[in-house]
Structures are given as structure tokens and as C-alpha cells.
Design a protein around this nucleic acid. Sequence first.
DNA 1: TATATTGTCTACTTATTTGATAGAATTTAT
DNA 2: ATAAATTCTATCAAATAAGTAGACAATATA
Lengths: 129, 129
Amino acid sequence: MLGRNYGQGYLLTRNIAQKENIPKKFLEQILLELKHARFVNSKQGVGGGYYLIKKPKDISVADVYRLFDGAIALVPCVSLNFYEKCDDCKNEKECLLHDEFIKIREGARVVMSKTTIQSFLQHDKKRKK
Amino acid sequence: MLGRNYGQGYLLTRNIAQKENIPKKFLEQILLELKHARFVNSKQGVGGGYYLIKKPKDISVADVYRLFDGAIALVPCVSLNFYEKCDDCKNEKECLLHDEFIKIREGARVVMSKTTIQSFLQHDKKRKK
DNA sequence: TATATTGTCTACTTATTTGATAGAATTTAT
DNA sequence: ATAAATTCTATCAAATAAGTAGACAATATA
């Protein structure tokens, strides 16, 4: 909804909640998190609400996934954005899993980065025809 | 270790635990789950232990991931092996996320299916040179 | 400036999952 | 018979997920 409404003013939490069938209070928290991550902005008071700051084509599924679910990698030791050293594994260079898990991360990362809010909206448009 | 030992008899939980730095009791449960899923087989008593049933090339990361972590898809409504209908979403056909999420699932699924125990072993071999 | 409207923030709840731990029971080779 | 293994069931503590609740702050406008 925020994507479809891009550049067209404020959307009320109440309206999004109703239309998308999400508990209002729950949605508020999600929107707040999106605001802190600078994907959306908001205004309080009468005539306020939320709107998308970034262009739909500049918000990827990877971005949103990282915000709410964290690392795309299956193990922290091959994560780009959430790297952590393994506890069990003694040395990363010698680990036989490491390089293959990087390939898997790349498979997931690439497709999740290519897919954006814009992708969803384009798809939506095609359906409507 | 089970992969490297393929076709060469039984491995003791005790030895795997020690070498791979995994609590023995925890490893036991993992091996048991692998047995129930028919990836490994075991024998009790003296001279017993665990061994891989399937060929290393026939066990993919996708297989193991599904066993321990469940669906590869980001949302159940596009999952091949763990399909569930959305609660929120009214009709799947009209959902603008659906087809794009299938593409994402395919990106992840393909790379996870291509990577097998054999891939890790080959990598291991190369390293040793 | 009072008021209704709307977002902000913090705390809490309930259920599930994760990463184990513990111990008794069972099987098997010798 | 016995020692060595796996098998099974129960339990636990900590973290996470999904959502609820309510006080608080900002803002337009009448």
C-alpha cells in the first residue's frame, strides 16, 4: 500500500490495518521500525500518517528481510551484514563448509536484492490488465 | 565426517562429538533425527555407531535444511514442501507478492539443491592439495 | 487555546523454538 | 553375563515471535 501510494501523501495506520487485515497496534510497531530504518516517514496529528521515503525501486526484499529477520546467510560466519565468528569451528579458512555456504548466501542474496517494491507493483499492474 | 567416512563402516558418536566439538548428547539427538529421516543408519552395541546411507552426492543442503529448519520459502503460501494458506491474504491468485516470492524461493532452492555433501568433500580435497 | 486526531514509546504477555542436559531403556558383540 | 553403544522420553533455560496495552507527544483546526 505504501508503495502504491508513493508520492501521493499520507496513509493512515487505521486504513492500512483495515485494508490489509493486520491488527492496528501490531502494524504501528512495524511502521515504527520501518521509520527508524528510514524506509518511511510520518507526521503526527490530524492529516498525518505514513509515507514511503525511498523510491519503490530502491527498497529490496533483502533490505526488508535484513531489518525484520536478520541475516540472509544460513550461518553467521558467512554473513555480510551480520558476521559473527563460529563457536565450534576452529579456523574459518580451513572450514570445508565456508566457501560453499558463501555460494548459497549469494544465490539467496542476489535474488532477494533484485526483487524490490517496484517488482511487486509492476506485477500488480500486469494482473490488472 | 559421515560424508568423508562414506562406505567405510561405523562412526562413534563419541568420536564425532570430540572431533567436531559438539556436546555428545546434543549430537545424539541430531543423529537420531537424521536416522529417522533415513539419511543415516546405525547399529547399537559394541562395534556399532552411525554411517551414511545415501551417497554424499544425493544429500543436498536443501534436504538437510528442510529437515532441521523447515521451509526454504520466505512465506508458507509459496512453499513446495511446507505449503500453508495465508491467514491475512484473501486470495492467492490476486496477491501481488505471490509470484515474486516464488522467484525468490526458486533462487534459494536451486542453489541449496545444487550444493551437496559431495560439494563439501570436493572442496575439502582441493584445499588439501 | 481546547480538542480530536494521529504517531511514539515502553512494558508486558503468551506461545514456540533453540540448544542443550539427564537418565533410563534397549540392543549387540564377545 | 557384561560392557559398549544407540534409543527414547522428559526436562530446562534463554531467546524469539507475535501481539496487546496504555501512557505520552505532536499537530491541525475550529
